[in-house]
């Protein structure tokens, strides 16, 4: 699948500070850009993320398939 990746900007000083702080609390932190897709219908909503738009949409489709499935007790 052809997908366009967006160039990630270097971390700001504020981002670096937060990452350092979390590292001091024992967390290994990594950050990256994600596509976020959202589907709404009336009061319903579903959201999915992916490294590419296609990946996000594929996950959205699967999430909606599950949501639209059985709802019987």
């Amino acid at each position: 699948m052809v997908t366009a990746r967006v160039e990630e900007p270097p971390p700001s000083a504020e981002a670096a500070r937060v990452e350092r702080e979390l590292a001091e609390r024992g967390w290994e932190v990594s950050s990256h850009l994600l596509w976020v897709t959202v589907a709404r219908r009336g009061g319903e909503a579903e959201q999915a993320e992916g490294r590419t738009r296609e990946e996000a949409l594929a996950r959205l489709v699967e999430a909606l398939r599950l949501d639209e499935g059985a709802r019987l007790p």
């Binding site: 996950r59 699967e62 999430a63 398939r65 599950l66 949501d67 499935g69 059985a70 709802r71 019987l72």
Partner: peptide
Amino acid sequence: RLVHASIVDGMRLSKAMRD
């Protein structure tokens, strides 16, 4: 695709990939 709603919720709470 027809699993019970409680399974759907449980899968959402997991970090695992869902298909």
